[in-house]
Simulated scan of single mutants.
Amino acid sequence: MMLFTEVRGLAVLPPGGSGPLGTVTSLTVDIVSGSVSHVRFRDGRFGREMALPWDAVHTIGPGAVRLRAAAVPEPVPSQHDLLGHRVLVDTGTEHGTVLDVAFDTRTARVLALFTTRGELPADSLLGLGEYALVVRAG
Protein backbone atom coordinates (compact mmCIF):
# COMPACT_ATOMS: atom_id res chain seq x y z
CA MET A 1 0.00 0.00 0.00
CA MET A 2 1.11 3.53 -0.75
CA LEU A 3 -0.39 7.01 -0.47
CA PHE A 4 -0.79 9.44 -3.35
CA THR A 5 1.16 12.05 -1.36
CA GLU A 6 4.10 9.61 -1.13
CA VAL A 7 4.17 9.23 -4.93
CA ARG A 8 4.19 12.97 -5.72
CA GLY A 9 7.71 14.14 -6.42
CA LEU A 10 9.14 10.69 -7.23
CA ALA A 11 11.44 10.40 -10.23
CA VAL A 12 10.03 8.57 -13.28
CA LEU A 13 12.79 6.25 -14.50
CA PRO A 14 12.91 4.48 -17.86
CA PRO A 15 14.29 0.94 -18.04
CA GLY A 16 18.04 0.66 -18.37
CA GLY A 17 19.02 3.15 -15.71
CA SER A 18 19.32 6.30 -17.83
CA GLY A 19 18.32 9.66 -16.34
CA PRO A 20 14.80 10.38 -15.13
CA LEU A 21 12.06 11.33 -17.59
CA GLY A 22 10.58 13.69 -15.05
CA THR A 23 8.88 13.96 -11.68
CA VAL A 24 5.44 12.61 -10.68
CA THR A 25 2.85 15.37 -10.24
CA SER A 26 -0.25 13.22 -9.63
CA LEU A 27 -2.09 10.00 -10.30
CA THR A 28 -5.27 9.78 -12.36
CA VAL A 29 -8.03 7.49 -11.10
CA ASP A 30 -10.60 5.75 -13.25
CA ILE A 31 -13.66 6.04 -11.02
CA VAL A 32 -15.52 3.20 -12.77
CA SER A 33 -12.81 0.61 -12.13
CA GLY A 34 -11.63 2.20 -8.87
CA SER A 35 -8.01 2.03 -10.02
CA VAL A 36 -5.13 4.30 -10.91
CA SER A 37 -5.20 4.64 -14.70
CA HIS A 38 -2.28 7.02 -15.35
CA VAL A 39 0.86 8.42 -13.76
CA ARG A 40 1.14 12.11 -14.53
CA PHE A 41 4.56 13.71 -14.51
CA ARG A 42 6.35 16.91 -15.40
CA ASP A 43 8.83 16.36 -18.23
CA GLY A 44 12.38 17.11 -17.06
CA ARG A 45 13.45 18.74 -20.34
CA PHE A 46 10.61 21.05 -21.31
CA GLY A 47 8.45 21.12 -18.18
CA ARG A 48 5.43 19.73 -20.05
CA GLU A 49 2.92 17.62 -18.18
CA MET A 50 2.84 14.10 -19.61
CA ALA A 51 1.07 10.89 -18.66
CA LEU A 52 1.85 7.21 -18.78
CA PRO A 53 -0.79 4.48 -18.56
CA TRP A 54 -0.55 2.36 -15.42
CA ASP A 55 0.39 -0.65 -17.60
CA ALA A 56 3.70 1.10 -18.33
CA VAL A 57 4.68 1.02 -14.64
CA HIS A 58 7.01 -1.82 -13.68
CA THR A 59 7.43 -0.92 -10.01
CA ILE A 60 6.55 1.99 -7.79
CA GLY A 61 8.03 2.57 -4.42
CA PRO A 62 10.24 4.72 -2.29
CA GLY A 63 12.57 6.70 -4.49
CA ALA A 64 11.15 6.19 -7.98
CA VAL A 65 8.53 4.99 -10.41
CA ARG A 66 10.29 2.49 -12.70
CA LEU A 67 8.86 1.88 -16.16
CA ARG A 68 8.64 -1.10 -18.47
CA ALA A 69 10.51 -1.17 -21.80
CA ALA A 70 7.53 -0.10 -23.94
CA ALA A 71 6.59 3.03 -21.97
CA VAL A 72 5.44 5.82 -24.30
CA PRO A 73 4.10 9.08 -22.80
CA GLU A 74 0.55 10.04 -23.78
CA PRO A 75 -1.37 13.30 -23.75
CA VAL A 76 -2.60 14.08 -20.26
CA PRO A 77 -6.07 12.60 -19.61
CA SER A 78 -8.82 15.05 -18.68
CA GLN A 79 -9.45 13.55 -15.24
CA HIS A 80 -9.00 15.78 -12.22
CA ASP A 81 -6.60 15.19 -9.35
CA LEU A 82 -8.39 13.65 -6.36
CA LEU A 83 -6.18 15.38 -3.79
CA GLY A 84 -7.76 18.59 -2.57
CA HIS A 85 -11.07 17.84 -4.31
CA ARG A 86 -14.37 18.60 -2.54
CA VAL A 87 -16.32 15.45 -1.59
CA LEU A 88 -20.10 15.29 -1.90
CA VAL A 89 -22.29 12.40 -0.81
CA ASP A 90 -24.96 11.31 -3.30
CA THR A 91 -27.57 12.45 -0.77
CA GLY A 92 -26.36 16.04 -1.26
CA THR A 93 -24.29 16.56 1.87
CA GLU A 94 -20.66 17.60 1.90
CA HIS A 95 -17.96 15.28 3.26
CA GLY A 96 -14.97 17.64 3.37
CA THR A 97 -12.06 17.47 0.94
CA VAL A 98 -9.69 14.66 -0.07
CA LEU A 99 -6.44 14.76 1.91
CA ASP A 100 -4.94 11.52 0.58
CA VAL A 101 -5.69 8.26 -1.21
CA ALA A 102 -4.30 4.81 -0.39
CA PHE A 103 -3.73 2.38 -3.27
CA ASP A 104 -2.17 -1.01 -3.95
CA THR A 105 1.09 -0.49 -5.88
CA ARG A 106 0.83 -3.90 -7.58
CA THR A 107 -2.77 -3.83 -8.77
CA ALA A 108 -3.36 -0.03 -8.85
CA ARG A 109 -6.64 -0.52 -6.94
CA VAL A 110 -7.74 2.38 -4.77
CA LEU A 111 -8.08 1.11 -1.20
CA ALA A 112 -9.38 4.12 0.73
CA LEU A 113 -9.83 7.88 0.63
CA PHE A 114 -8.86 10.06 3.56
CA THR A 115 -10.87 13.25 3.83
CA THR A 116 -11.04 16.14 6.27
CA ARG A 117 -14.06 14.34 7.74
CA GLY A 118 -12.65 10.83 7.98
CA GLU A 119 -11.94 7.75 5.90
CA LEU A 120 -14.12 6.58 3.00
CA PRO A 121 -14.03 3.10 1.45
CA ALA A 122 -12.90 2.90 -2.17
CA ASP A 123 -16.11 1.19 -3.25
CA SER A 124 -18.08 4.34 -2.40
CA LEU A 125 -16.69 6.24 -5.44
CA LEU A 126 -19.41 7.26 -7.90
CA GLY A 127 -18.09 10.11 -10.02
CA LEU A 128 -15.47 12.80 -10.39
CA GLY A 129 -16.01 16.14 -12.03
CA GLU A 130 -14.61 19.62 -12.03
CA TYR A 131 -16.71 20.62 -9.01
CA ALA A 132 -16.50 17.56 -6.74
CA LEU A 133 -15.87 13.88 -6.13
CA VAL A 134 -19.23 12.18 -5.56
CA VAL A 135 -19.41 9.20 -3.21
CA ARG A 136 -22.17 6.79 -2.23
CA ALA A 137 -23.76 7.27 1.20
CA GLY A 138 -22.57 4.53 3.48
Rank of each mutant, 00 (worst) to 15 (best):
G138T: 07
A56Y: 08
V101P: 11
L133M: 00
G84H: 02
G92P: 10
A11V: 02
G63V: 13
S26W: 05
A64Y: 06
R48E: 15
A51C: 06
V36S: 12
L10F: 05
G129M: 01
V24Y: 02
G118K: 01
V57R: 12
G17P: 12
A64W: 06
D100R: 10
T97C: 09
S18H: 02
F103N: 05
V98E: 04
G17D: 07
P53W: 09
A56I: 09
R68Y: 01
T25I: 07
T116G: 15
L99M: 04
P62A: 15
A71I: 07
G44S: 08
V101C: 11
L99Y: 01
F4P: 00
L10I: 14
S35Q: 15
V36P: 08
L67T: 08
P62E: 14
L3A: 05
T97V: 15
T59W: 05
P14I: 03
R66L: 15
T23Y: 02
A132Y: 01
T93A: 11
R106P: 00
I60Q: 13
T116L: 03
G61A: 09
Q79A: 13
L67V: 08
Y131K: 11
L21Q: 09
A11H: 08
A122C: 09
S124Q: 14
V39Y: 04
G129D: 06
R109K: 11
L99E: 14
V7F: 00
T116M: 07
D100W: 06
E94P: 10
M50K: 03
G61V: 13
G9Q: 03
A56C: 13
L128V: 04
V76E: 00
H38Y: 13
H58C: 04
E119Y: 02
G19I: 05
P62I: 11
G17R: 07
D104A: 06
L21G: 04
L21I: 04
E49W: 02
T28H: 12
Y131T: 10
V72P: 03
L133C: 01
V76A: 00
P77V: 07
P20T: 06
E74H: 09
V101T: 05
L120D: 03
G61P: 08
V24S: 12
V39G: 11
R117Q: 13
R42K: 14
L52I: 05
I60M: 15
G118N: 01
G63Q: 14
F114Q: 14
L3E: 02
G17E: 07
A108V: 07
F114D: 14
R136N: 06
L13T: 06
G118T: 04
S35C: 15
R42C: 10
A102R: 13
H58Q: 14
R68C: 03
H95W: 10
F103R: 10
R40K: 11
A132N: 00
D43H: 06
R48W: 07
A70Y: 12
D30Q: 08
L10K: 08
S78K: 13
V134Q: 03
A112I: 02
A69G: 00
A132P: 04
